[in-house]
Amino acid sequence: MIHVGLSGHTTTFLLDEEGYRSLRSYFERARSRLGGDPDREEVLRDLEQSIGERFAALSPSGGRVIAGNEVDAVLGQVGTVDPGSGNGPDRHESPMRRRPFCRIAQGSWIGGVCTGLAIRSGIRVDWVRTIFILGAVFTGGIVVLVYLALVFALPVVQTRDEYEDLCRLSP
């Protein structure tokens, strides 16, 4: 359980681990989407305040733990930050968008190597895992070493959305 303070609200809210992670990653994404917006901090405070109002409706006295799925529902109502035109990073999509290799923690089994490869390539993660597992069996463990090397070599990204943002923002 984590106590969270939100802009404008005098009481703190109690979130579980999962809810806290969702909230944090929402704000990290919002911050990167708003990029060069001169009013970025103010927009983030406005969002915090709105999210706080919805949390307050869930837990009027602030004493109840707000669970991950409730936080996700609130974030869904508030919606992904859309910087709109003339704000934030340049959103021209180039045909050769760089999609870096990463590990992705969301939905991972071990180190997120397969989820990362699957999301980068658009192949279903079940297939990537099957290939890795068969590879591990038939190569006598070499693939396991490759997997471990990748765990050390690749940077980790928390969620799929974050990865897509990273791709959008990278030059």
Partner: peptide, 30 residues
């Protein structure tokens, strides 16, 4: 629409001096 879209839009419109705002106390919350 949702807050995620509305807030960045309101802040841009305020920068373009189309809107202005003032703070007002509310009975419930900030």
């Amino acid at each position: 629409t949702k807050e995620g879209t509305l807030y960045p839009l309101l802040s841009r419109m305020r920068r373009e001096r189309l809107l202005e705002y003032e703070w007002q106390e509310s009975e419930a919350g900030p």
